[in-house]
């Protein structure tokens, strides 16, 4: 429609580019610290208050980040690993926007210290997708228009996906209970419930079809 060439610059991309110089400096000092493995976090050894290299297992990959003990997991994910899908809203555990999975259980990244996540499997919203394929809960959120401003959405999706992991056949009350800590100021709850129950029904239908024709499973 328009002759103006489309310039693909996003606000986040711009900010990331602008921060590159500063980030390089951090990476250099990080590798200097990482060289001294004795400084690294280990049981019964006091570390900090200055930055210390720690290994975090995020979305199936191990990362070494150099963080002060006071950095929260949310800050570590966003500022050190570029995983900005995890949102920080209240930073006090009151809104659940920062919900991630720790060893498969929904937890608050803003009330977890990054250093305390060592040895735990961290799953963020970025880890739910399989390559370019969205998680069924994400697909259902799009289908049911379960978001408005979108800020609570990653936390909401993490909570609903975790519910479906442990309960393949949740009822409306289960979904309401699961998201009771995820605050949405836009009031998208009815759509969130519909989306989650839709995924559950798809699971049930698929399971039912398998019982009719188990050979198809292969």
């Amino acid at each position: 429609m328009s002759d103006t060439p489309k310039i693909e610059v996003s606000r986040r991309g711009f900010l990331k580019g602008a921060g590159l110089t500063a980030a390089t400096t951090v990476i250099e000092s990080a590798s200097a610290l990482a060289r001294d493995a004795k400084e690294a976090m280990q049981p019964d050894r006091s570390v900090g208050p200055d930055a210390v290299p720690v290994k975090l297992h995020v979305n199936g990959q191990e990362h070494t980040v150099t963080i002060e003990p006071r950095y929260t997991l949310a800050e570590t994910l966003r500022d050190h690993l570029g995983l900005t899908g995890t949102k920080v809203v209240c930073d006090r555990g009151s809104c659940s926007a920062c919900t991630v999975w720790l060893d498969g259980t929904p937890a608050l990244a803003c009330m977890t210290l990054g250093i305390d996540a060592v040895g735990r499997k961290i799953t963020t919203i970025e880890g739910l997708t399989q390559g370019a394929e969205m998680h069924p809960v994400q697909v259902a959120f799009v289908k049911h228009d379960a978001m408005q401003c979108g800020f609570c959405t990653p936390g909401m999706v993490m909570t609903c996906a975790a519910l479906l992991e442990r309960n393949h056949d949740p009822k409306l009350a289960d979904v309401k209970h699961a998201v009771s800590g995820n605050l949405c100021r836009c009031g998208t709850y009815p759509k969130v419930f519909a989306a989650t129950l839709d995924v559950a029904q798809q699971h049930q239908r698929a399971a039912y079809l398998l019982t009719l024709n188990p050979a198809k499973e292969a």
Binding site: D44, S46, P69, R70, I115
Partner: peptide, 19 residues
């Protein structure tokens, strides 16, 4: 938050020694 040191303990005795 203020800066602080952090020690990860695995036994009660170790934790008591650090307190």
């Amino acid at each position: 938050m203020n800066k602080f040191a952090f020690v990860d303990c695995t036994t009660v005795d170790q934790a008591l020694a650090e307190l």
